[in-house]
Design a protein around this nucleic acid. Structure first.
Ligand code: SF4
Ligand code: SF4
Lengths: 145, 145
DNA sequence: CATTATTCAGACAATTTTATCCGAAATAAA
DNA sequence: TTTATTTCGGATAAAATTGTCTGAATAATG
């Protein structure tokens, strides 16, 4: 059951680390984040470039450069990250994948599937990085091993 | 959002077609099913071999051979098909994919994710091929284009 | 027995996803 | 101005998923 791609999982984890471990300086380097959450620096760089292109991050090159949130953490919702990394058609996928759906009658699992998708959408839309970060900082939950 | 692999989607659609379009004879040929639901005969054959190996189908070779349900349609639940085709660890996947999870504290989205997985599990466990087939036969919903 | 229809088994190819790597561009600091 | 640090861009590779194909095994039928 792959609700999120590796790319999205890494992206969310990396952003949560950023928000939960503020560096003091304006920008945080990708290398440091990759080291801390233990994933490939180059892969994370690729993910962050996409998030920068989509307006979720700012970036700045050179020494003491790095990346920073383009908006307050309270205004970045999980759904924004997912849309940026998985595409805006993220919720258009189907459980059975009938050809030409949306036009004719629904398939036998549509009602159920619709509800599941709705639940996920509501939750991803209502949860901000700030919200999750607070849980991490208070050590209510964990992000690292 | 890929909740089911193509393999599972095809498998479920094919089984639903079988149940909703009984052939009169004991076995139904894979070729006919593949033609009716418009997918590759060879791919469907591979899927059905797996379902046969997992005890969900019987098979019989030769002319007038084919496949048949190993149990009444009312006793084959969606979850059985998913477990057979996606593996028994289907519900063990994580939203964030933290390393070494299940041991230490949960991640910040665990509560939500647990609920979503539970909903899906309950539904897949409670829905039989018979149940869905009735909806199809009564033309309440569609399976084909 | 020969022919035909069917599943079985697995090799192979195409596509997508995931991951690695290298060099260029920008920029701060020495 | 030189050097070190960092993101940017994209090539390449590895792995997983999806799809195609060929031949063998099995069994009914003429
Ligand atoms: S009816 Fe709904 S769940 Fe079923 S294939 Fe169409 S959009 Fe997807
Ligand atoms: S805490 Fe729960 S949702 Fe989060 S990674 Fe672990 S098992 Fe998955």
């Amino acid at each position: 059951m792959k609700v999120l791609s590796q790319t999205s999982k890494y992206g969310i984890r990396a952003l949560l680390y950023m928000v939960s471990h503020p560096s003091g300086s304006e920008y945080m380097s990708i290398g440091e984040i990759a080291r801390e959450i233990d994933l490939s620096f180059h892969f994370l760089t690729k993910i962050f470039r996409e998030l920068t292109a989509k307006g979720i991050l700012y970036s700045y090159r050179g020494p003491s450069g790095g990346i920073a949130l383009a908006k307050p953490a309270s205004e970045i919702m999980l759904v924004d990250i997912v849309f940026a990394l998985e595409g805006k058609d993220y919720f258009d996928q189907c459980l059975l994948g009938l050809p030409g759906c949306g036009h004719a009658k629904p398939c036998p699992v549509h009602d159920f599937w619709k509800d599941v998708k709705h639940d996920i959408r509501v939750h991803l839309s209502g949860t901000s990085l700030q919200h999750l970060s607070e849980k991490i900082v208070s050590e209510e939950v964990r992000l690292l091993l």
